Simulated assay, not measured.
Amino acid sequence: MAHHSPSFPSARQAQIIRANQRDLFHVLSLKEQVDNVLRSSLGTRWLLKWDKEVDLILKLLYYGLTIGRAVQTLGEEYTDTWQHSAFSSKVPSRASRIALVLVPTLPSYILAKWGSHLSSLSPRVASALRILPMSLEVVAEVNLAIFYLRGTYYDLTKRILGIRHISTTPENPHAHPPSYSLLGILILIRLLYRLVHYLRSRAHDANEKSRGKRALDGTRDMFIDDRLVSSMLEYVDPENAPVKPAEEDENTVLDVGAIPARARASRNCTLCLEERTDSCATECGHLFCWNCIVGWGREKAECPLCRQALNLTRLLPIYNL
């Protein structure tokens, strides 16, 4: 008597989306808790310096202990889905699982950490490094649009490796799953708009060069008190920068020495834990040292206190606080 292995239906789009969202939620929650522990024990400056490494290690641990061991992630467990190879109809091979863990995490870390150093090797390498992240983003959006239209391969790496999802939940023949085709169409429209905008900007730059004019990069020069903002946003290493006493702060109208000790204690920057110097305010109204918030913003574009979006060109110098 022949024995037939059980067959499971393909996971539905909603299950795959919820599984990915759940995994992202758990990774972000774990990162936030680890950040709080490291910030309280080692300080904000240490965390700012090693934030990328901490993020990489946490992702490698989370996905390595789940996908790397051929078990469900927390998101897949939540939605009752499993990964399987479309080529062999079995559990993904060890090489495929290693690629699933490393490919989404390691290249982005390398580009973020050492991209600026690699760009000094040659103009060709610098040009490739500038184009590569944007190209990968476009390819990922195209893959996402295809997923919303066809329902397979939410992740680009899984599409390349041929790893799909199956569900242990029986299909309900009387229920119609939701359609995400409209989202796919909207993504394609956005990509088309970006392509048209890019081609127009290239044509405009070519015309400017043919007329002997300087090509613009699409941004306007911004000034604060006759100082160019771009010159004020130079790289700052908060770990190695010497602490400047508040009495030597030239960018304040206050007589810091005359301020009572209790009032001065409330002027500490939450990033360096020292008394603020070159004080500035973010759009959300929080005060920091200029060098501290610029160093933080180059690593993470969000306010360290309230997590609102942080735009370094919109920092406001404060001279009387």
Rank of each mutant, 00 (worst) to 15 (best):
H3D: 00
F8A: 05
A11T: 07
Q15I: 06
R18F: 15
Q21I: 06
Q21P: 00
D23P: 02
H26F: 11
L28K: 07
L30R: 03
L30Y: 09
L30V: 11
N36S: 12
L38F: 12
G43D: 04
W46M: 09
L48H: 11
V54C: 13
L56T: 05
L58M: 13
K59S: 13
K59L: 12
K59F: 00
L65D: 01
G68S: 11
A70Q: 04
V71G: 12
Q72S: 02
Q72C: 08
E76D: 14
Y78P: 00
W82F: 06
H84M: 03
S89N: 15
L102W: 08
S108M: 10
W114T: 01
S116H: 12
S119M: 06
L136Y: 13
A140G: 00
I146S: 01
I146F: 08
G151P: 05
T152W: 13
Y153H: 13
Y154A: 01
I160T: 03
H165Q: 01
P178E: 07
S181Y: 01
L186E: 08
H197N: 00
R200Q: 05
N207C: 06
G218D: 04
F223D: 05
S230C: 11
L233C: 04
D237A: 01
D237K: 10
P238V: 11
N240E: 09
N240L: 14
A246Q: 09
V253P: 00
L254K: 14
L254F: 07
V256L: 08
G257T: 09
P260V: 12
A263T: 04
A263S: 15
C280Y: 07
A281S: 15
C289H: 04
W290M: 12
A301K: 10
L310F: 03
T313M: 09
L315K: 02
L316W: 03
P317L: 10
